[in-house]
Amino acid sequence: MPLSRRIERALPNALGIGLTGFVLVVLFGPVLLLALFSFNDSTVISLPWEGFTTRWYSEALNDDGAMSAIGHSLVVASVVTVASLILGTLASWGLTRIPFRGRSLVAGIHGAVLVVPWLIIGIAGLIFFSQIELALSLQTITLMHIVVTFPLVVAVVSAGLIRFDPSLEEAAIDMGASQLQMMRYVVLPQIAPSLAAAAIFAFAWSFNNFEISFFTGGFEQTFPVWVYGVLRHSSNLPVVNAASTIIALAQVLLVFGLWYGMKLMTKRRGGTDRDAAEMITGAVR
């Protein structure tokens, strides 16, 4: 092959790799840099490199404030995930399978909630709770988080249900299955990727949310609110940095674990990597 032709062929590839690399650096560079500095033996996050230490990590792990905030966030995010998953799946079923008047209106309202800024939802929640004179607490945070994650779950699970071939449901009924058996044996195993994606998103949204938790929370803080609070003293910076690195790493591992699990699952069903990607991106679309 002549050289010019070879260059012509290799060029798109090289460009693609270059561009991807650039995007990755811009996106994750700062995060990785922070993670790196969490091992720097200095209270300021900047060069020069003062030496490797795990001091900030042991401090973070021994910091009662950090640990209880993380604990609160885990509890809130778990409750929010389970509640919004159950409610959202039921709502998705209604929206995609049961014809009723004003169905598109209801679906539209769900979509609308997704684009309202969290700040506004947080303030609205604050006003609402003070109107009904409900004391702010982790419960009020949980309630307001569900307001946001519920439509998210509805969007993701509905997408899965719309892609789901309804003749599979009929086939199950045709062979004598009740509605419940059809759900259990046919529908749920099929929309499992959508449910998993919805669960991950709901959990991450709730766990990472600052605005809503800030306005509708009481004395007990969630992790982002705690971070905001302690960051006012710059001496806390390395500890926050270490704690955030742990949290970020845990979330990344969670998502990758899920991705890998789904790949295994589609492989077992005779699908390809592409099917797995299709299932996951399809669940999000």
Partner: peptide, 13 residues
């Protein structure tokens, strides 16, 4: 009675 669907409707999982 049982039905055979045009797209077969086999359960993929």
């Amino acid at each position: 009675v049982n039905m055979v669907f045009q797209n077969y409707a086999l359960f993929p999982h």
